[in-house]
Structures are given as C-alpha cells and as structure tokens.
Design a protein around this nucleic acid. Structure first.
Lengths: 234, 234
DNA sequence: CGTGTCATTTTGTGATCACAAAATTCACCA
DNA sequence: TGGTGAATTTTGTGATCACAAAATGACACG
C-alpha cells in the first residue's frame, strides 16, 4: 500500500525545513492541509478520518494531527463519535437548513461591513478570481471551483477586519463544503450560476443593499436549490 | 507552592474512576472544567495559561490539556500567541463591539426558534433559575450570577435543538465572559437589571416578538452599557 | 541606580510507548 | 453455504521523554 486514501496533497515525505520553522509550524501545516481538504471537498462526509492515516499521509507524527483534529471538531468541521472515531459529519436536511439560514444571517452582514474597506485593488482581485471561477464552471472542475469560490467570499469578508464574525462564518463553510462537493459530483457544475458579478458591481458602486442582495442570491443559488437534492436522494 | 493559580476547582488529585470511564473521558472532564472556568470568569483576560499548570491542577497528564486548549483556541475562547503561549484574549473596544453585535444577531433568532419547543416544565425551570439569579445580584456573587445567567440563556437556546447556531453562540459567550467578570469585579453586580422576567412572560404567552425584545434587552443591558467601561478605564 | 549579559528554569512541541477498546479478519462449525 | 465465535489488527488515549525556544532571575558592570 503505497498510496493511502490520498485525500491530501501528500508531498512525498518532503521534510524541507527551509520554510518557516517557528513555534507550532508543523501543526499549522497540518491544519492548513486538512482545512483545505475539507473546503475543497477532498473528504467525503461519513467517511472516517484516522489520526495515524493522516499522520503518515502528511509525513508527520500523530501528535500534531491529534491537536488539529480537536480544533476542527471544535469548529464542527469534524465529528468525534462516542467511540472516539473522527469522521466528516453526515449532512442532514435539518442541519443543511440551519447552515443555510445561518449563512444568510451572517454573511450579508459581514459583507456590508467590508464594503467601506474594499479598495479598487480588491475589486481587481475579485474580478480575477471570478474569471477563473467562470472557467471552472465551464470545465467542470468542482474542486477548483470550491477553492476559488471560498477565496472570493473570504477576500470580501476578510476586508472587514472582523475577528468575531469571520471565524463563525469559517466554521459554517467547513460544515457545508464537504457535502456540497458530493452534490457537485452528482449534478455537475453546469447548473451553477455566477452571482459574483453583481457583487463586484455593488462593491464598485458602494451600494450596501445591492451587495447584500448579491450575497444572499449567491448563497441561495449555490446552496438553496441544489441542496434540495438530499431530500430526494436519501 | 502547594496551590497554583487555583483557577480551577482543583479536586485534590481525586482520581475517582467510579464515574464514566468511556473513550476520552479525561479530555471531556478537562474540557468541562476549563470551559466552566472561562464562563464564570475564573480566568483573567491577558493572563497566560500553561499546559503543565492546568494539568497538575486537574491532576491529569499534559496530554488531554493540550487537546482541550487547541479546541478552545479554535473557538476563540483562548488565544495562541506566536511564541506558542496560550492566554485568555484581551478585550478590545472593537472586539467587544463585534461580540455584542454578533450576539444581537444570533441570540434573538435562536430564542425565537426555541419558542415552540419550550414547555411549561421549561418555564418552571427558567423561573427557578431566575429566582436564584435575583439572589446572586443582591448578594453580589458575580461568579454564581454568571453561571446561572449562562444556564438561563442556554436552557432556552438548547430547546431549539440547534446544532449549528448553538455552537456559534457558545463561542461568543466564551469570548466575552472572562471580560465581563472583570467588569463585575469593578462595578459590582448591583447595577445589573433582570430582564429575564419579561423573557419568561413572553415564553408563557408564546409571543415571538416579545421574546426577541426581551433577549435584545437583556444583552444590551448586560453588556451594552457597562461595557463602555473599557473605553474610559483603558 | 539602571542596564545589559548570562545561567537557570519554565514551557510548548513533536515523537514514541503502553494499553484498552473497537473494528476487522478469518477460521470453524452447524 | 451462511453465520458465529475467537484471534488479530487497527485505532484512540493518556503518559512520558527529549529538545529547542522563550521567559525568568541573578549578577556584574557602567
């Protein structure tokens, strides 16, 4: 067994300390790897995640993995079952509905707060990201789409400088992302509608309400309609 | 040094295995202890929290403490500095304002969703808690007040059965509780106004808007006015 | 009296180990 | 052939260790 579940980008045991080797560097690397894996849907909901498995995949000892798994469990991105087993939580209709409503509650709010902080440079960056998103939708690259969609939203939200709402939204994304990946895998990316252009226009025009509407539209279009899939497929 | 910082209820190395010894029991015990300590203000903001210190306080090995600290750091209840040191985050005006607004955004919403699930038995329980709260305000027992106030709010919120919003609110409480404790220590508990009675009445009458208003009032009264202390004392 | 330096202690981190519980495999029998 | 039991492997957990970085304190010097 040379290759494991291969949910991670598994650099072949490359232990180059050339990068930053400050305090807790290994843990941060593991954290970033697993987080990225969750956000791009490389982990399948319901599938068990083992400490030793991830450790060998990432070429580190089980120790930092244990801590990271606890962190992600605290953010409800992972679920620790009663037997200690860790897995990506299964999505239920109730949970899906709750995450959707929570997103609609928090994200337009934070986007509006970001509005005044967003510069022309940010608009340029967002436009670049959005262009790449268009290509991903056409080419059907779901993983890249998810990564870029996350980048787009959080580029906006991060501008707010929020230290409270932003982590909450982060938690929400970690919760629905793995499930959405399975949805895209089933229905494809063709059904995706790009609502980002209206958001960009709203930012350019400094229109608070229009930005809120664009975010709301993006969330409902991205999750709302295709999310109903779980009600029939299960 | 026999006694440490004594931020915990330090049972004298009582290793009673008599209780539940299921998987991860030690970690849960440590988690509950530290969480409770944060919510009742037994940890001072800005003060460093050491792994070995807590471990010896709780009579366990550093290992479960490490994991719990990571968990709480993920919830922004603790802060890991660049040198790896863990401390209770210092409150800043910006952060305080953000937490306050986030509470006003989430808690009335979840309270409203709880409304239909709350039974007469719950009203009875809430009334009992509120009576004890009154006594704490009179006697000036800030720690008991905080514990009961938390119990009151979360008894309402838990009824909603929420698995998404509830953890987010949990995170918010962990963030502001330690700071509020220092506020109460400075201005006393006499200034506290009890808004819970209106909440109870709203629940009895199944009045959604009244419940929202009561929760909003409780949050603003409890945090809003006295929170302005930090703007002058700093 | 203040200040910089050096030795000591404390602390976090990653690794490894031992153990128990759980899951898995597999042989054996009805 | 199908299921049931034990044997084996896997896995999480708590503890301990070694190491480096950081904090602390002592002490000498200006």
């Amino acid at each position: 067994m040379s290759d494991r579940h291969s949910a991670l980008t598994s650099p072949p045991a490359n232990d180059r300390k050339g990068a930053t080797s400050s305090r807790g560097a290994t843990r941060e690397q593991v954290d970033a790897a697993i987080r990225s894996g969750l956000l791009t849907g490389r982990f399948i909901p319901g599938k068990a995640v083992t400490i030793r498995g991830l450790a060998t995949d990432l070429g580190v000892s089980p120790m930092p993995v244990r801590e990271v798994l606890q962190r992600l469990a605290a953010e409800n991105a992972l679920e620790v079952k009663s037997n200690g087993r860790v897995q990506v939580p299964d999505m239920t209709p109730d949970r899906f509905d709750e995450v959707l409503k929570a997103r609609l509650l928090l994200e337009p709010e934070l986007a509006e707060r970001s509005l005044e902080k967003l510069s022309k440079r940010d608009v340029k960056m967002l436009t670049t990201i959005d262009d790449e998103i268009d290509q991903c939708i056409i080419s059907g690259d779901a993983e890249a789409y998810m990564r870029l969609n996350h980048a787009f939203h959080f580029h906006v939200y991060r501008a707010s400088g929020s230290k409270v709402l932003l982590p909450l939204i982060d938690s929400l994304w970690l919760q629905f992302a793995p499930f959405m990946r399975t949805v895209y895998g089933r229905v494809g990316t063709a059904i995706l509608v790009d609502q980002h252009k209206e958001a960009i226009r709203a930012i350019e025009q400094r229109d608070r309400d229009a930005l809120r509407d664009a975010i709301v539209g993006d969330i409902t279009d991205g999750m709302g309609l295709i999310g109903k899939e779980i009600l029939e497929t299960t």
